[in-house]
Amino acid sequence: MKPEFENIPLVKNETKKRFEIEVNGHFAFINYGEREHQIALVHTEAEPELAGTGAAAAVVEKTLQLIKDSGKKLLPFCPYVFAFIKKHPEWKAIVDEKFGGYDQL
């Protein structure tokens, strides 16, 4: 994660069902679904003003850390999150082994 994002807090916006960070009034976020022992990440997006800044990667990394800390298992349905985990295999440890694409990570 780029240093400029390290101190930006991750917010779990339960109303919008997304994890988000706010950067200069603009949002990068991941839509999620949650069960007792799992969190599914469905879609990652950054507002156009944040394109190319690393904000999307930062919100993914912060969200993965939150899931790890929660003890829940991850279902990475979002292609961006899936690709992030492939690039950073240390996060595979939090992916639910029953996830359909687990063997491709």
Rank of each mutant, 00 (worst) to 15 (best):
residue 12 K to D: 08
residue 54 G to P: 04
residue 3 P to Q: 12
residue 42 V to M: 15
residue 5 F to K: 02
residue 56 A to F: 06
residue 98 K to Q: 13
residue 8 I to G: 04
residue 1 M to D: 13
residue 92 K to Q: 11
residue 27 F to V: 08
residue 42 V to H: 14
residue 63 T to Q: 07
residue 81 V to Y: 03
residue 38 Q to R: 15
residue 31 N to S: 11
residue 67 I to W: 12
residue 57 A to Y: 03
residue 44 T to Y: 02
residue 100 G to E: 14
residue 63 T to F: 09
residue 101 G to Q: 14
residue 81 V to R: 02
residue 18 R to T: 06
residue 58 A to Y: 02
residue 78 C to T: 08
residue 53 T to C: 11
residue 5 F to M: 02
residue 56 A to N: 00
residue 39 I to R: 01
residue 15 T to I: 10
residue 36 E to D: 14
residue 25 G to I: 06
residue 97 E to L: 08
residue 43 H to Q: 13
residue 41 L to R: 07
residue 50 L to D: 02
residue 29 F to H: 02
residue 14 E to P: 03
residue 70 S to W: 08
residue 26 H to P: 10
residue 77 F to N: 15
residue 34 E to C: 02
residue 35 R to N: 14
residue 5 F to Q: 05
residue 27 F to W: 09
residue 21 I to V: 05
residue 88 H to A: 04
residue 36 E to Q: 11
residue 8 I to T: 07
residue 33 G to T: 14
residue 69 D to M: 01
residue 51 A to K: 13
residue 19 F to C: 12
residue 66 L to N: 14
residue 60 V to M: 11
residue 51 A to E: 14
residue 77 F to H: 15
residue 53 T to H: 09
residue 33 G to E: 15
residue 84 F to G: 01
residue 84 F to S: 00
residue 14 E to Y: 01
residue 57 A to N: 13
residue 68 K to T: 10
residue 10 L to W: 00
residue 5 F to L: 07
residue 38 Q to P: 08
residue 46 A to P: 08
residue 70 S to C: 06
residue 73 K to I: 05
residue 88 H to I: 05
residue 92 K to C: 07
residue 29 F to N: 03
residue 50 L to K: 00
residue 62 K to R: 00
residue 13 N to V: 03
residue 84 F to A: 01
residue 4 E to I: 12
residue 30 I to E: 09
residue 24 N to I: 04
residue 12 K to F: 07
residue 95 V to D: 14
residue 101 G to S: 13
residue 85 I to G: 05
residue 102 Y to A: 06
residue 13 N to A: 03
residue 28 A to R: 03
residue 16 K to C: 09
residue 74 L to V: 12
residue 21 I to Y: 00
residue 15 T to V: 10
residue 64 L to V: 09
residue 65 Q to P: 10
residue 56 A to Y: 05
residue 59 V to F: 03
residue 16 K to G: 09
residue 80 Y to I: 01
residue 5 F to H: 04
residue 64 L to N: 08
residue 37 H to I: 11
residue 50 L to Y: 01
residue 71 G to P: 00
residue 104 Q to D: 11
residue 51 A to W: 12
residue 41 L to N: 07
residue 100 G to D: 12
residue 47 E to C: 10
residue 80 Y to T: 00
residue 87 K to E: 07
residue 51 A to G: 12
residue 97 E to A: 09
residue 46 A to C: 08
residue 47 E to G: 10
residue 3 P to T: 13
residue 73 K to S: 10
residue 6 E to Y: 10
residue 8 I to K: 06
residue 40 A to S: 15
residue 89 P to M: 02
residue 20 E to P: 04
residue 101 G to C: 11
residue 69 D to C: 01
residue 48 P to S: 08
residue 47 E to M: 10
residue 94 I to T: 12
residue 11 V to T: 05
residue 34 E to P: 00
residue 77 F to G: 14
residue 12 K to A: 09
residue 100 G to C: 07
residue 76 P to D: 09
residue 33 G to R: 15
residue 13 N to H: 03
residue 49 E to A: 15
residue 100 G to Q: 12
residue 46 A to E: 07
residue 45 E to N: 14
residue 31 N to K: 14
residue 91 W to S: 06
residue 45 E to R: 13
residue 80 Y to Q: 00
residue 49 E to W: 10
residue 36 E to H: 08
residue 68 K to Y: 12
residue 86 K to D: 05
residue 105 L to F: 05
residue 58 A to T: 06
residue 65 Q to K: 12
residue 32 Y to S: 10
residue 77 F to V: 13
residue 96 D to C: 13
residue 24 N to S: 12
residue 102 Y to N: 07
residue 78 C to W: 07
residue 21 I to R: 02
